[in-house]
């Protein structure tokens, strides 16, 4: 008779729940269908219609953009807009790109520099992913796959505004593909709109930023259950991971949130981690 007991007794890891939820979220986020602007979530319908209308116009009409800047509400709300959106597809890939740009800050030097950099980063990212898709396709055909049945690889560039007001803008650009999550990239930008420069952890917390941030994260981890802690690397030293280049964003409540990518502090299957730094 068939002995199924071994199969039925396969141990289910504690992280499975987390992994599935995380994947559901990632899958929903990377769906190809059109998503609403993130900014709209917090606004009433009437306001939303106005903003949607305005953002569209900001993208097409420099005159309107000039005028809009003088309307305090819109000026305060956010100065990050989509300047270009395009879709491209062929037999091996489909690409969806949404490029953000920071506008009307009154600091044109900063804007130019930043927007050029964003454009450059996005181009690099798309190029890398295109090469991966091409390699993958070639490997697929070489190993006997039928080119007509190849499932095109999706490459998506999108962005999310984390917070934005008259003082600062915090946003993240996502560049990912459907085939290999290992190549996914998230680029964080935190811009001081008053001073016209990039915000660093040092600007925010002062010279002792490493200690402050690391202590804060360690306190949060200390509150975790043993099971949660198990996914962390054994030789994890948070303080070594806090540098000028550590990814972070500023949330709606004006708090710094440190974003560790997958594999940075824990097993890959546990996903990425975020820590709110309480001042």
């Amino acid at each position: 008779m068939i002995d199924k007991s071994k199969y039925n007794n396969i141990e289910i890891p504690d992280e499975l729940d987390h992994v599935v939820n995380d994947a559901i979220f990632e899958g929903m986020r990377t769906q190809r269908k059109k998503k609403p602007f993130f900014v709209l979530k917090r606004l009433g319908t009437v306001m939303a219609v106005f903003v949607l209308f305005s953002i569209t116009l900001l993208n097409v009409s420099p005159v309107f953009a000039q005028v809009a800047y003088n309307i305090p509400i819109l000026g305060d709300l956010c100065r990050i807009v989509t300047i270009r959106e395009y879709h491209f597809e062929d037999e091996i890939k489909y690409i969806d790109v949404k490029i953000p740009e920071i506008t009307s800050t009154g600091k044109s030097d900063l804007e130019n520099r930043l927007n050029l950099e964003i454009q450059k980063k996005i181009n690099e990212c798309i190029k890398t992913h295109e090469e991966v898709a091409k390699d993958y396709f070639e490997a697929y055909v070489k190993t006997g796959g039928n080119p007509d049945e190849f499932n095109p690889i999706g490459i998506t560039v999108d962005y999310e505004i984390k917070s934005c007001n008259e003082n600062y803008a915090s946003f993240v650009i996502y560049c990912y593909e459907t085939a290999f999550t290992a190549y996914n990239e998230e680029i964080y930008y935190n811009v001081d709109l008053e001073r016209g420069r990039i915000i660093t952890l040092k600007d925010w917390f002062g010279n002792d930023y490493k200690e402050i941030v690391a202590d804060n994260i360690e306190k949060t981890i200390a509150e975790w259950s043993e099971e949660q802690k198990e996914v962390l690397w054994d030789d994890l030293e948070i303080i070594d991971l806090i540098t000028e280049n550590t990814d972070f964003y500023i949330n709606d409540e004006g708090q710094i949130v440190i974003a560790f990518p997958k594999y940075e502090i824990a097993y890959g299957a546990a996903g990425a981690f975020e820590f709110v730094i309480k001042k």
């Binding site: 994947a23 899958g27 999706g154």
Partner: peptide, 15 residues
């Protein structure tokens, strides 16, 4: 776990 993760992401993308 990685396989389950990838399968779930793909399923939602392609639903």
């Amino acid at each position: 776990l990685d396989i389950v993760h990838n399968a779930v992401v793909k399923a939602l993308q392609k639903i």
